[in-house]
Design a binder for these strands. Sequence first.
DNA 1: ACTCATCGATACGGTATCGTAGCACCGATA
DNA 2: TATCGGTGCTACGATACCGTATCGATGAGT
Lengths: 247, 247
Amino acid sequence: MSARQVADAEGELAAGPIKEKTRRPVLRGAHARDRVLTAALEVLADRGLAGFSMEAVAHRAGASKPTLYRRWRSPGELLVDAMDASFRPIPLPATGDLRSGLVELLSTFERLLDQQHFPGLLAAFMDAAERDPRLKSLHADLTEHRREPLRLLLARARDRGEIPAEADIELAVDLLGGPLFYRRFVAHRGYREGYVSGVVDHVLRSLGHTSPSPSPSPTIDGGGWTPGKERSPAGRLDQRWPTAREG
Amino acid sequence: MSARQVADAEGELAAGPIKEKTRRPVLRGAHARDRVLTAALEVLADRGLAGFSMEAVAHRAGASKPTLYRRWRSPGELLVDAMDASFRPIPLPATGDLRSGLVELLSTFERLLDQQHFPGLLAAFMDAAERDPRLKSLHADLTEHRREPLRLLLARARDRGEIPAEADIELAVDLLGGPLFYRRFVAHRGYREGYVSGVVDHVLRSLGHTSPSPSPSPTIDGGGWTPGKERSPAGRLDQRWPTAREG
DNA sequence: ACTCATCGATACGGTATCGTAGCACCGATA
DNA sequence: TATCGGTGCTACGATACCGTATCGATGAGT
């Protein structure tokens, strides 16, 4: 029992407004959960797996350690939930020809890679995926969802006959998305003006695309990485993920 | 002072061949430095940035903490030196045609990505590069060196007229290397048979390559998704991964 | 207005790493 | 052979995080 707590109680009895550090409203239940997951992703983006600790997350979330431990039995469980909650769908371009659709999608992604938190978060995910098979498959799932729009656009174009029926769509997706990742996380170079459209044009040409006609495309919302809705709750994790200390 | 040390001393005085394990020969100077840098890269590959500690490196190197601190003032300095020493050049293919040269280079790289330590190390590098500008530029330099062979092959082909003079070689390098990285670290899928040649063929076609030899597209699609094959944990690496001082 | 599950704050022992110090030992050099 | 400097070993206080227990406070539903 601390002296300050006693003082607070007396303050209430004295009917005077407590002017010392006011307690901000404490949201509970699902709200607290979201707050913690968001904080977890922020910590992960800022400091990577190395700085990902229950204490750091609790501090950033304005929560207490026991609150975290009540919901997640280990840092590993929290990490899994946070990763799982990090996905936010990229809106499918509304339309038009294949080329402008692809350019729009990749441009959206290019902007994502320029945001503050996303690259740090993705780098942490890639690193984490290399250390733990569970995180690897989780990351694979997230990526699978992110690939969906590209795959869909290509499949539609193939059905329309703009792309040969034998075209390897999976490979095409790799060719489209790979360079952006590579350039950002490995080569560490910026994207020149028109880089995205350069990639798209090359890939379409390699696919034998019979182009209707190129058209300038507007850009849409950058998505974001903040945890959205809860998806599949990903299996419970009984053990901690491999960390520096013991295990 | 330990009893064992005393026992060692007595063993010498007894003039008998020291048959107990005792001490292995202690290499000094540059040897000790290399040993530590190699250990540092191993630790980094195994446990990532989160598990990269002076104690862990010292233990794996069979060195003592003070020895590490005598040479590097902090874990950060050691990390920088280790990254810097990690580069090992990929041999330039004995020149055949452009296509086979590219396939050979990418195949070599594909094999690298299948080795035990390399992916973990690269993931750690990517993560580290996002946290520290110094490591980022270091990583950028390393990558720059790795891109060189691809760039050289493409430039020669361009000079020979096999590729249009306006071809964007930097973009071509991204298109060639990106998918391998993306597939390994983001999509977490295995490489199908003929994946590399598929990438090369598509990129060459996109560049408008006038091929001297036929380049039939091999297996088409299949979409087979081979999640990272489990490799035996006992499997030692007889082929050395990028190690110190070989730069 | 009342109750209760939930939350924040604090404290605690335990462990891992940090960065430094002192000492014994041995490889290299003269 | 004798020195000299690099090296391994142990120990130390300090710090950070772990995972848990306890208690007071409070939001939300009745």
